[in-house]
């Protein structure tokens, strides 16, 4: 009977292998990265001066663009924590999951349409990430 009890969240957390923890951290990193990209996209529409210098200057005056970069910083921190215990070649491509969140968020927030191309694309990315995640457990 006792073996059928559901483990508490803290217990399951302690049982996660370092590889699984790294994967979860990168998954959180991709969600933050998607939010960052959406802020950067809205922010980059108001960049006044062309050129890389213009974008760098806009960072100081454009709050939306700055917010995008700040979220990118946070997601980078999570990536670093993930890389501490995981393989770079496994974890880095998982960041492509950001495209999936951006597509879904654009649909929910901006009411952008999801066409068959996007659907094939995000399905393929999810399959690829799943395969990477499985190969990490071996």
């Amino acid at each position: 009977m006792s073996s059928a009890t559901i483990p508490k969240p803290a217990e399951t957390g302690a049982r996660l292998s370092p590889q699984t923890k790294s994967l979860v951290l990168v998954l959180c990193c991709t969600v933050l990265g998607a939010a960052a990209q959406i802020l950067m996209k809205s922010g980059s529409a108001h960049v006044a001066h062309p050129g890389i210098v213009g974008v760098a200057m806009a960072l100081l005056t454009n709050l939306t663009l700055f917010g995008g970069y700040a979220l990118y910083g946070l997601s980078t921190l999570l990536l670093v924590l993930a890389l501490r215990d995981g393989e770079l070649s496994l974890l880095y491509p998982v960041i492509a999951l950001t495209y999936v969140w951006v597509t879904l968020l654009s649909f929910l927030i901006f009411r952008e349409t999801i066409n068959p191309f996007k659907l094939i694309g995000i399905s393929s990315i999810v399959c690829g990430v799943a395969i990477l995640g499985r190969s990490g457990k071996q």
Binding site: S89, L90, P93, A96, Y99, T103, I114, N115, P116, F117, K118, L119, I120, G121, I122, S123, S124, I125, V126, C127, G128, V129, A130, I131, L132, R134, S135, G136, Q138
Partner: peptide, 19 residues
């Protein structure tokens, strides 16, 4: 696993870009 996973991701990113 890395090659197959990465290949699927690249194909996926191409289609997202196409759409």
């Amino acid at each position: 696993g890395k090659f197959v996973g990465l290949a699927l991701i690249l194909v996926g990113v191409f289609f997202v870009g196409l759409g």
